[in-house]
Design a protein around this nucleic acid. Structure first.
Lengths: 189, 189
DNA sequence: CTGTAGTTTCAGAAAATACTGAAATATCCG
DNA sequence: CGGATATTTCAGTATTTTCTGAAACTACAG
């Protein structure tokens, strides 16, 4: 690997973190490389930059495309496919959330649903099913919330984040507003 | 493995998902088993239920304790350690978020900080650093937000989730309130 | 149709990870 | 302390995952 120092450290870090993120080292490195590259790179550029085999790069790029974290981009006067990461980090975050949900949460949700449909044949199973119901309820609440906020434009999402826990203040206000609406004597909030 | 049908399916599913969640099959199964068990189990119970080696269970339990997803619990008249998962699913969610952040996000955040301190030695590095700054900004916003809401009691967290994207309505209200505060003539909202 | 440049597939090698049984260690009780 | 029970460590084995080079495939230009 022969990259400028900062780039190299970044790429190596992503390689190491790869395993914790459920991807392998090469895939992590390819992503990092494309992320900090000022222009789209072709597979051979990646081979050269990372010093791994051509076929490994091919597989890595395929996997990253499967995650929608890397997109092909045509470059004038070159038959070869070139690749970039989407530029907007907020978009990347959405993609990541979406894909992780799809891989890590959805399968479990559907298994839980199936198991909750079945009739328990023993006390153990009855208890187990109750626990599964709790887990199912939690996941369902989370995914409903996620489905809701994923549609927000970035700007709104950012202000929501910036508010943080302070939004709960408005929950209080809401309670008061509701009270007013029920005919109690209003007074200034 | 010899468990009641529902329990068994649940345990097997967690074993399969393990790899996607960054844990191995046995660890996933142990967790699932403890989660649906009506009483704390000792290591030998787990060996018996899952049909894996004693030492494997020992390592798995150790790992799960490292994640704070399993806690030892004493059982009367038995010298052996017994283990449970915390009962409250919301607490489990918090723990999971906390641990995943610690393992998957924090190391990258600190590497990014380091790399942003360094002086770029080339145009490539200058560009790379700009991209790293974007990523750093995003992660920092997310972790700030997370630090904020992780402290909420469950009840408030739940209502926040239930509100979903509707909280943004209050952002509009807030704008109005600010406007009022600046001396424009107030009228009922 | 043929040659060329580019890409993907795939079987096996290499590396990493998970699992086991045996031995070592720790803990408790009398 | 000595013996019994419970737990952990660890070296070796098995399994899984990753990576490679060679071959197969594809698309296009001449």
């Amino acid at each position: 690997m022969d990259l400028p120092p900062l780039a190299q450290q970044f790429v190596l870090h992503f390689g190491e973190m790869g395993s914790r993120w459920g991807i392998n080292r090469t895939v992590g490195q390819i992503y990092a490389l494309l992320y900090i590259s000022p222009r789209p790179l072709c597979a051979d550029d990646v081979v050269e930059a990372l010093g791994v085999s051509r076929s490994n790069v091919s597989m890595g790029l395929r996997e990253l495309q499967g995650w929608n974290l890397v997109v092909p981009r045509h470059v004038a006067d070159d038959r070869r496919d070139h690749f970039t990461t989407p530029g907007d980090v907020w978009q990347i975050l959405r993609t990541l959330a979406e894909e992780r949900k799809k891989r890590e949460v959805d399968p479990t949700l559907s298994v839980l649903r199936e198991l909750l449909m079945q009739t328990p044949g023993s006390d153990e199973d009855r208890f187990a099913q109750a626990r599964m119901a709790e887990m199912h309820g939690l996941i369902e609440q989370l995914t409903t919330w996620y489905d809701d906020i994923r549609r927000l434009e970035t700007e709104r999402l950012v202000s929501l984040l910036a508010m943080g826990a302070r939004v709960t203040k408005f929950l209080d206000i809401k309670d008061k507003v509701v009270t007013f609406g029920r005919g109690r004597s209003p007074r200034k909030a």
